[in-house]
Computed example of a mutant assay.
Amino acid sequence: MTTMLVTGSHGWVGTHICRLLAGQGHRVVGVGRRPQTMAGRYLQFDLHDAAAVDVALDEVRPDVVFHLAGATPQREPEVGRLVADCVGGTYSIGHALRTVARRYRYRPRLVLAGSSAQYGAVPWEQNPVSEQALPRPTGAYGHAKLAAEATAFALAADGHIEVVAARAFNHVGPGETVGTVAGALARRIADVAAGRSSRVRVGDLDAVRDFTDVRDIARAYLAMAQKGKSGDAYNVCSESGVAIRTVLDILLALANLDHSVVDLGADRGGIGHQVGSAGRLRGETGWTPRIPLRQSLRDLLAEHWSGPLRSGGETTKGAT
């Protein structure tokens, strides 16, 4: 039985990957800062506590570590804290894993969750973005994630551990928070459909993003753990550009609403167009996304509203 340790196990992606791993018969050990309960074993400690990290990894001796913990672009903290979380946390878990690997003479693997924010604003004509694109982050989050990736690869340079790094594009699906564009739209539309609000305020609808269901992203991380090449980074994406306007249209249709409830704001800025290429991941692991965007959005909306949702030509009830 393979032992899989997941940092950030109760986060959005962490919850899905723990469920996937347990379903495939792996021994799953979750890690987080706060008290939690889960089906497998759970360890509570702070990744900034080097002694606690060393003790935990020495006891568990994981075959694979999925490092998902850290700040998110939606909850980007003060820059010092951001760097400490992304870079310091990666160093802490990677260094402890390397120490255990040397002590017990085995070669574990670290799967690092990175972000398409590492690429920054790539010119439209250079989309879809491949791993060969020169990273030019435009914000602190992208810089911190890029530095974390470099830190992980440096720790693996002498061959004691293996490291594969994901550069995941936009996630979507069940469990999504209101800090993301799809999560925010789903909540606002659910509020209107349920009578809790009368208007759906939106920002820039022309921005184009590459959405992948969070459950497919969990599958991609597992594929990287099993078949990825150590020392490589992999884009995790659908390779399909979708305007935010399309996301809005799908959610409105699912909730049986029209555009008369929409207030268009003036919010613009950030990256206008970003679509990835998943050719490396597909070619080396066989991974492809399975869940269509409409299903992802339907599952997301159902978490916010118990009313009838359209599915194809039929109307069904949402989650309670």
Score class of each variant (00 low, 15 high):
G94A: 07
T177C: 11
E59P: 01
P292K: 00
R245T: 10
A152V: 01
D206N: 15
D299A: 12
H259T: 14
G173I: 12
L21S: 08
I17E: 04
E78D: 14
A220K: 02
P35M: 07
R41M: 15
A96K: 04
R187H: 15
G114L: 08
N235K: 10
V31Q: 03
R215M: 00
D206F: 05
I161R: 00
G228K: 00
A133E: 12
G40T: 10
G120R: 00
D299M: 09
L293K: 00
L185W: 00
E76K: 06
T138Q: 15
V55C: 09
A150N: 05
G114W: 01
D213W: 01
V64C: 13
S296P: 08
I250W: 03
N170L: 12
L205V: 06
R188G: 09
T180H: 08
A168W: 01
D46N: 12
A253F: 02
P135W: 11
T90K: 06
K229H: 14
T138N: 10
D216C: 03
S115E: 11
S130D: 15
Q295V: 02
D232L: 14
G312F: 04
A193S: 14
I217A: 14
A52D: 06
A193T: 06
V65C: 14
R109I: 08
Y119V: 03
Q126M: 08
A302L: 02
A22N: 10
L82T: 04
A144P: 06
R103Y: 02
R187I: 09
E239L: 04
P128G: 08
G269P: 10
I189M: 10
R188M: 15
V28G: 02
G8W: 01
A156M: 07
V192G: 14
P77A: 08
S116C: 15
G14S: 12
D232M: 07
I161S: 04
S130C: 15
T7I: 13
R98K: 15
N127C: 14
R107N: 04
V214M: 03
W287K: 01
G179Y: 05
A121Q: 11
V200R: 02
I271L: 12
A193H: 09
S277W: 09
S9C: 11
G279A: 06
N170R: 08
R209Q: 13
R105D: 15
L251C: 12
G265P: 01
H10E: 14
T246V: 15
G139C: 13
S198A: 10
G23K: 03
A96D: 02
S306K: 05
T212I: 14
Q44H: 06
V275I: 12
P174D: 10
R196Q: 13
R280P: 02
H95G: 06
G23M: 14
H67P: 04
V28Q: 03
H26T: 12
V202T: 13
V262T: 00
A220Y: 07
A148H: 03
W124C: 15
I291E: 01
A223T: 06
H95Q: 11
D258A: 10
Y141W: 01
G89F: 03
T316I: 15
K227E: 07
G80C: 11
G94Q: 01
H304G: 02
W305S: 09
L97P: 04
V164K: 00
G241N: 09
R33A: 13
L185N: 04
L112D: 05
S198W: 12
F211S: 07
R188Y: 10
R102A: 14
